[in-house]
Design a protein around this nucleic acid. Structure first.
Lengths: 236, 236
DNA sequence: TTGAATTACAGACCAGTGGTCGGTATGATA
DNA sequence: TATCATACCGACCACTGGTCTGTAATTCAA
């Protein structure tokens, strides 16, 4: 009797999909390799044919995440209709929406990404994303410095700060989203908006721009994510 | 034959000491519980008598770290001879030296703390340190805002940024220290000093201070740490 | 068309992990 | 002296990530 190969296309991408689902819901440590291969419906041998280790699986997953996120903002660099400030603002506001269509999806991502058991996964994704985004940012800032829009003696350093602020914003959003009762949410939104405004002004001043030039967050987006959380909570 | 209790004082602190040595050199994941108990010379039962899990051991270790670091800077808050700016500057420059007497020790800490296998340990220490330091920072910034030294609408946010910059500085130092050849080191020092200057100016402007008010890093300290690395490398 | 070589699995097996548990010695208390 | 909680021991357990031998499927040269 010939062996039945149900899905010849069960390959790396497929394994990655299943791993992603498991890692995001259970965390990298808690989701065992056996879970992954059981979910993907493959054998251990098959897995180790495509990936040298569990670590490598994590790395590949993080790379894929970063590639997807990068693809969403790649166009900004090429858009000739934007000046450096416009580019930077687009990048800042859009990077949070790349590949996240609905607010509900955004909530799910936030909720899972910042859970402590996902520290390792999150860190890897960060590394990969950093490696992709940083050059973009530096390029934009350099352009701005050259044409006189921005003023700084350390474009890489500023790019680093921008990345830090981006992450910190995510962090605050996550904290506001995950913790707190329904009543606290309005307060959380206020704090969040204040924090975003602080980051905007900080970047303005670091780059020698007039206050109000940098625009990171659209309060509407934040509200939408928060509302999505409320809905998801009710659904339980 | 009566049981011989070699060291009645083998307790939590002792276990923490051995765990610290192992976790720092091998990482939290790679150092097994058996390694810890073997190093401490105790049995599994004894360990689980003092700690409910390996995780709890990590947490206790992080707490101890944070407590030690906090103790080193606690006095700054109480020093009546300092104004808010002085306090902030003292905190910024001293926090990096707290509990680290020699540059060689500092190097060893940097080298181990930022190794990827110590991610979990490092994260836990960070959490604990954050919880300790943040209130201190907020208090100082609030004082400054009240007496007109600082100007900001979000003291907690600024405190957060200060923490971020502190961490980032450590990160840059670690990268400069660990990577690169001997010849690159002078370049790394230059980059590092530039980055620290950027953070200083950024904080100046965020707090509405004239450039040059905030002083984070003493180049001498950085140089000393770098030199310690060179020595340690040669010793191998 | 065939045979050999390579690829793509399958799954038993392994050393080692964090954690449990029944038991025992020790010290304080009454 | 009896009682009881504390302190500790170490065999044991389910399970982990990873290895290895074996085999079916595929590719390709002759």
């Amino acid at each position: 009797m010939p062996r039945v190969i149900k899905h010849p296309e069960i390959r790396r991408e497929d394994i990655l999909d299943h791993a992603q689902a498991l890692f995001l819901t259970q965390g990298y440590d808690r989701a065992s390799l056996n879970d992954v291969i059981a979910s993907a419906g493959i054998s251990k041998g098959a897995f180790y044919h495509y990936f040298p280790s569990k670590e490598a699986l994590l790395e590949a997953l993080a790379d894929r995440f970063a590639r997807q996120a990068l693809a969403g903002v790649q166009g900004i660099l090429d858009d000739p209709g934007l000046d450096p400030l416009g580019r930077l603002n687009s990048l800042l506001s859009q990077s949070r929406q790349a590949k996240i269509e609905t607010a509900a999806e955004a909530w799910a991502l936030f909720e899972t990404m910042f859970r402590p058991e996902n520290l390792v996964l999150f860190h890897r994704i960060n590394l990969a994303a950093n490696a992709s985004f940083s050059p973009l940012l530096v390029k934009i800032i350099r352009q701005g410095v050259e044409d006189g829009t921005f003023r700084t003696f350390d474009p890489e350093g500023v790019a680093d700060i921008v990345m830090q602020f981006g992450l910190a914003t995510h962090d605050v959003v996550a904290k506001a989203i995950t913790g707190g009762s329904d009543a606290d949410m309005e307060v959380a939104i206020k704090v969040l908006e204040q924090r975003v405004r602080l980051y905007e002004i900080a970047l303005d001043r670091i780059l020698g721009l007039p206050d109000g030039s940098i625009r990171i967050g659209e309060p509407g987006y934040i509200r939408a994510v928060m509302t999505a959380r409320r809905k998801a909570d009710k659904a339980r």
